[in-house]
Amino acid sequence: MAPSSFTARAGDGLSITSAAVKKGKPTVVKYSWKFHDKSPKYFAVGIVEVSAHEFTLLDHEVKTRGHGDNGKGKDTVSIEVLEHYPGKYVLVLVDTDDFDTVFATSKAFQVKKSDF
Rank of each mutant, 00 (worst) to 15 (best):
residue 11 G to F: 06
residue 43 F to P: 03
residue 28 V to M: 02
residue 6 F to I: 00
residue 94 V to N: 02
residue 35 F to W: 14
residue 88 K to H: 12
residue 54 E to T: 15
residue 102 V to N: 07
residue 7 T to Y: 13
residue 37 D to L: 00
residue 40 P to V: 00
residue 46 G to Y: 01
residue 83 E to G: 13
residue 99 F to I: 02
residue 114 S to F: 06
residue 50 V to Y: 10
residue 84 H to E: 13
residue 85 Y to I: 09
residue 18 S to P: 00
residue 111 V to Y: 13
residue 13 G to Q: 00
residue 111 V to N: 10
residue 103 F to L: 05
residue 9 R to Y: 09
residue 40 P to I: 01
residue 12 D to G: 12
residue 61 E to R: 15
residue 76 T to M: 09
residue 2 A to F: 10
residue 36 H to D: 13
residue 82 L to R: 11
residue 23 K to S: 05
residue 102 V to W: 03
residue 30 K to T: 07
residue 33 W to T: 01
residue 3 P to M: 01
residue 86 P to Y: 10
residue 27 T to I: 01
residue 80 E to V: 06
residue 49 E to N: 14
residue 108 A to F: 06
residue 106 S to F: 08
residue 96 T to G: 04
residue 61 E to I: 06
residue 33 W to D: 02
residue 97 D to C: 02
residue 20 A to Y: 10
residue 39 S to N: 07
residue 94 V to E: 04
residue 81 V to S: 15
residue 69 D to W: 14
residue 71 G to Y: 10
residue 64 T to P: 08
residue 16 I to H: 09
residue 55 F to Y: 15
residue 59 D to A: 14
residue 73 G to P: 05
residue 4 S to I: 12
residue 6 F to C: 11
residue 53 H to K: 15
residue 61 E to G: 07
residue 48 V to W: 11
residue 88 K to L: 11
residue 10 A to M: 00
residue 113 K to S: 13
residue 38 K to R: 14
residue 41 K to N: 12
residue 90 V to M: 13
residue 87 G to H: 06
residue 93 L to R: 08
residue 58 L to D: 07
residue 65 R to E: 11
residue 42 Y to E: 04
residue 16 I to N: 09
residue 2 A to Q: 12
residue 104 A to W: 07
residue 33 W to L: 03
residue 39 S to F: 07
residue 44 A to E: 04
residue 1 M to T: 05
residue 79 I to G: 08
residue 1 M to P: 06
residue 1 M to N: 09
residue 5 S to Y: 14
residue 82 L to C: 02
residue 55 F to I: 05
residue 55 F to K: 12
residue 12 D to Y: 15
residue 113 K to C: 04
residue 29 V to A: 07
residue 59 D to R: 15
residue 18 S to C: 04
residue 100 D to H: 11
residue 43 F to G: 03
residue 81 V to A: 14
residue 85 Y to K: 15
residue 19 A to Q: 00
residue 80 E to W: 11
residue 41 K to I: 01
residue 104 A to M: 05
residue 98 D to A: 00
residue 20 A to T: 12
residue 35 F to Q: 06
residue 26 P to G: 00
residue 99 F to L: 06
residue 28 V to Q: 03
residue 35 F to L: 04
residue 35 F to V: 00
residue 16 I to P: 06
residue 93 L to Y: 11
residue 3 P to W: 05
residue 4 S to V: 12
residue 19 A to D: 01
residue 56 T to N: 11
residue 116 F to E: 09
residue 52 A to S: 15
residue 3 P to D: 00
residue 108 A to I: 02
residue 112 K to R: 14
residue 102 V to E: 02
residue 54 E to C: 08
residue 103 F to V: 06
residue 115 D to H: 15
residue 33 W to C: 00
residue 84 H to T: 13
residue 30 K to M: 00
residue 81 V to T: 15
residue 100 D to R: 11
residue 89 Y to C: 08
residue 41 K to S: 13
residue 33 W to I: 01
residue 77 V to T: 12
residue 11 G to T: 03
residue 53 H to N: 14
residue 45 V to P: 07
residue 69 D to R: 14
residue 2 A to H: 13
residue 112 K to Y: 13
residue 52 A to T: 15
residue 67 H to W: 10
residue 28 V to R: 08
residue 69 D to E: 13
residue 1 M to K: 04
